[in-house]
Amino acid sequence: MSRAEEVKSALCVLCGQLVTELHWAERRFDAGATGGLGTELGRRRDRFHRTRIVKQVLEHYGLQFDDDWSATSYVLANRKGASELVQNLGQLWPAAQRMAGRPLDPLDPGLLCALEAKQKGQGAA
């Protein structure tokens, strides 16, 4: 049984933000083991990993991406100082496309070349 399925809505006690629905990308199977992927620790680990990857993708479009302090939203920003809060990947891509002013396409050869070059650079280092 997936415990993540049980989390239909939650309220952040600090900022009062209502998280009404867990995005499909953030659900995980959890059999209840401590530190399992469906636990809070696992959720934080996934968020950290997600932020790191998205940051590298959005760099190609001149955008910045970070987890917010409460780990309930993400902060999307551009170099002109505009910023926007997004809750999940479903909200991220339309917002990032608006902010970048051009389509964000994972099949774009330019993006793939940049990501592959980054990978080679990391491999060489």
Binding site: A25, V57, L89, G90, L92, W93, P94, Q97, P103, L104, D105, P106, L107
Partner: peptide, 8 residues
């Protein structure tokens, strides 16, 4: 996948 489905 979410980026792919958004774009394509």
């Amino acid at each position: 996948l979410s980026m792919l489905l958004h774009a394509r």
